[in-house]
């Protein structure tokens, strides 16, 4: 578990145009610069929002990564719910899900 490294990479991706470009052209090279577990690496390269959420990434970083991946807001919310169903509760951090997997609080 290297949640900080994973979070740092997403933080950099949110703000650095060069990192964004590299994420498009050679994502593995970018990801290799950070000390990630195999699971974290797979989640990131696979744009797996659900697993990234369960791994404990702070939503304030994750939502921007979802936007970078072209994932619409309501799909972002649903992919997090699906991630919890598939992988179990959020494992770290302060962004746990407290509603039911079928619950759409604001209708989204």
């Amino acid at each position: 578990m290297s949640l900080y490294q994973l979070s740092k990479l997403l933080f950099v991706l949110n703000r650095d145009d060069a990192a964004k470009a590299q994420f498009r052209t050679d994502p593995e090279a970018l990801v290799n610069q950070y000390g990630l577990t195999t699971e974290e690496r797979t989640a990131l390269l696979g744009h797996d929002i659900g697993l990234l959420y369960v791994l404990g990434v702070n939503g304030q970083i994750l939502m921007h990564f979802a936007a970078l991946c072209g994932i619409a807001w309501q799909d972002y919310l649903q992919q997090m719910r699906d991630g919890v169903v598939r992988h179990g509760p959020v494992r770290a951090g302060i962004y746990a899900m407290t509603t039911g997997a079928d619950e759409k609080v604001a209708g989204l």
Binding site: Y53, M80, M97, A101, V105
Partner: peptide
């Protein structure tokens, strides 16, 4: 509020 989570809107 529970921003940027599936609970967003709660």
């Amino acid at each position: 509020h529970w921003p940027a989570t599936p609970d967003s809107g709660k």
